[in-house]
Design a protein around this nucleic acid. Structure first.
Lengths: 199, 199
DNA sequence: GCTTATTCCTAACAGTGTTCGGGAAGGACG
DNA sequence: CGTCCTTCCCGAACACTGTTAGGAATAAGC
């Protein structure tokens, strides 16, 4: 009932072209026109599939969030105890940022989308829920001796710690030669110990 | 020996005009032309005082860094013990981000400058050194029982924790209603405890 | 063979950072 | 006085950006 599309899945091929460009140049330097050219479309045609450049980036960020969530989920299984699992999740978070820098920055480095309030952005609902589930387990295992902090508070603190490590390494300490992973591990371990989650 | 300048200190008035605009709109939405108009210059004239828009923002970021450093320095005195001082510094870091959002984002929210490697950016050399001095003291006070982690490692971990909290509150959790400060305090306290710095 | 819906593009608009060339203004010097 | 030179400043343009309006091509349904 219509003119045939150039690609089997134009939306997908646009997304892939965009991601490829972003990986090499950084999302803030990738223009809509460049994406269009790489995907074999005219600039205006992208608007058939995305409301705006922001919409395109938001879609890619959503996919990145899914990848991050899956990675964290796998990491949670590696810990032999609930507390160790939390450390693994934190490390996986930072590793993800290091190894998929542009994915991470797509998620957390775009001020335009970060400026709007929480409910509209929630970019990492799924990754965050992985952390919360881990905390719930660890708090249960720690039992009485645990902090009286809530699950939300503890989850936020752990997320923030890992997020800070990731953010620094990916932005202002990028290129700085140091064994960050070792420091991250001791930091996260110290944090779960200090929160009385350790076993 | 020259034509008189429009303002006594044109560079300063440009910087102030820019900062005013940035505070209300966010640095990424402020155009050079808007700054020029607000300062009473033509767009081209700004290039008499700054190499580029980036240069202007970098200058503002430097001033923000100084303000942050001074704030942290004051906070370091509030702690009754070296360990407590570290917690205060961390809290001051996050408070600064909350209360001077645009200053903080100018420092840590501009990917363009964050993408280049460490030596060229080091935006927070002074703030960071405040943390390191605090850690040195706390490690000394803790003596033998302290972790065998280096000053740099401990400083990095503390910085990262505070930075993560600040970053999340200023970006993706912005607008979310919660008592972040309480969580931040327990988190930072737990961290210094877990690092065997507490007294 | 129409109609209708979808896909796609050309052309344009308003905005951006930046550069070029020159005008205006005043101190220094003949 | 007039000339030079330097500094300050601007208008106009360039190449780029995201976005939109309007129309052409292509196929399916009737």
């Amino acid at each position: 009932m219509a003119r045939p599309t150039k690609s089997d899945d134009p939306r997908r091929s646009i997304l892939e072209a965009a991601r490829a460009l972003i990986v090499e140049e950084g999302h803030e330097k990738v223009s809509l026109r460049a994406v269009a050219a790489a995907a074999g479309f005219s600039p205006a045609s992208l608007y058939e599939y995305f409301d705006s450049r922001e919409d395109l980036l938001k879609t890619l960020a959503g996919e990145a969030s899914n990848r991050l969530g899956a990675t964290l989920l796998k990491a949670a299984d590696k810990g032999k105890t609930p507390a160790a699992a939390l450390v693994e999740v934190g490390l996986a978070y930072v590793d993800f940022a290091r190894e998929h820098r542009e994915d991470f920055l797509l998620l957390f480095g775009r001020l335009e989308s970060a400026r709007q309030s929480f409910s509209e952005s929630v970019p990492s609902a799924s990754p965050y829920s992985v952390v919360m589930n881990g905390v719930r387990e660890a708090l249960g295992a720690a039992g009485r001796r645990a902090t009286q902090a809530t699950v939300e508070q503890v989850s936020y603190v752990l997320w923030a710690a890992a997020h800070g490590m990731a953010m620094l390494q990916v932005t202002h300490l990028h290129g700085f030669d140091a064994d960050f992973r070792a420091a991250d591990r001791t930091g996260l371990q110290a944090l779960v110990r200090g929160l009385d989650l350790a076993d």
